[in-house]
Design a protein around this nucleic acid. Sequence first.
DNA 1: AACACGGTCAACCGCAAGTTA
DNA 2: ATAACTTGCGGTTGACCGTGT
Length: 372
Amino acid sequence: MGRAPCCDRAGLKKGPWTQEEDEKLVSYIKKHGQGNWRTLPKNAGLERCGKSCRLRWTNYLRPDIKRGRFSFEEEETIIQLHSILGNKWSAIAARLPGRTDNEIKNYWNTHIRKRLLRMGIDPVTHAPRLDFLDLTSLLNKHHHPAATNAYYPTQADLEALRALEPLASYPADLLRLASTLLSPPNQDQQQQQQQMLLMPWLQIMAQQQQQQQQQVSDQRATAAAAHQLLMQQPCGLAAGQMPGLVHHANLQEDHMVPGCVVDYAQPPAAGACYDYVPALMHMVSDADASNNNNNNLQWSSTVDTGSNNNVGSGVSTPSSSPAAGRVNSASTTTTTTTAFGALNDVIAADDADAGLFDMQLYSDLLDVSDYM
DNA sequence: AACACGGTCAACCGCAAGTTA
DNA sequence: ATAACTTGCGGTTGACCGTGT
């Protein structure tokens, strides 16, 4: 398998393309179609190598290329697909019509990757990493005006700690973590005092945990049933590889495979196509207790768009945990649910058809070969 | 105004797989 | 089977630009 010497020829132009060159290339491809890149430059009157022409066409001149900033939905999709595919930019681009692999790769490296790092998420594994986390950005520490030496957590602080909770074994680790976060630097002698100051905070969290445990208890029971069902299903993933949090890819209709249109307001039809992927995104039940008994699910993202105020959003649970543990962990202090709990909401919406579509759903859920 | 710095992204490079003779 | 060649991919580079000092 010899190497292509296509660019070795001396005298070939490199660097940015001129408008004239672009016009030549577009004109030629419109007439003769693309392909045979080796002979194309000569035939088109270009002093470029075929490789350069192909790249220019596929990454810039192609008429179906979408220009402009990535939408929120596109960004979510990239993150989600990357969590499955890794740096398979062409495979990711195949799911984003109008976007090139080069564009997605650039966007990942310049925007998404850095954002994930700031949020304490390993951009390679998509797992939360405390050592990556900019802790100071998490907490809006402030002094209570009436206090002399105590930090009083804001609601945002509570949510930030909740997001970290999957990383700790509640409550001892969380106490240590919270204490570390709130301790002034180089003040080890005050550690114990700080922990005492944190007790009211942790009591608040414990109370809220109790309330939320009640709220998710139903989901837990059915999630366990779903897990049982899942374990009977052959799938493409080995045990332990089961994505912990799965959710709909939130693709816009025009980003989805034809026929894969999802209407959240309706239970899925038998055999419907779904794009469930592990993600940084959490499906969360509505934090508002008044909405707890309906199917008012919403999507929460770790991506800070400035418009997402969903309670409980934050860092996803580590993806290395086995599925059983994940399902059982649905009753945490967070309002995050597993997809199985959420699926149950959907299934419960139409018990009569549940037996028909749930097997298909789990099968689709676990089949990532489509992404490869 | 001049410079440094960082972000962005088009373009290039090198490799591997596929195809053809 | 082998070599020559094509195509596609992912990683990297460097020019350009905006911003801060």
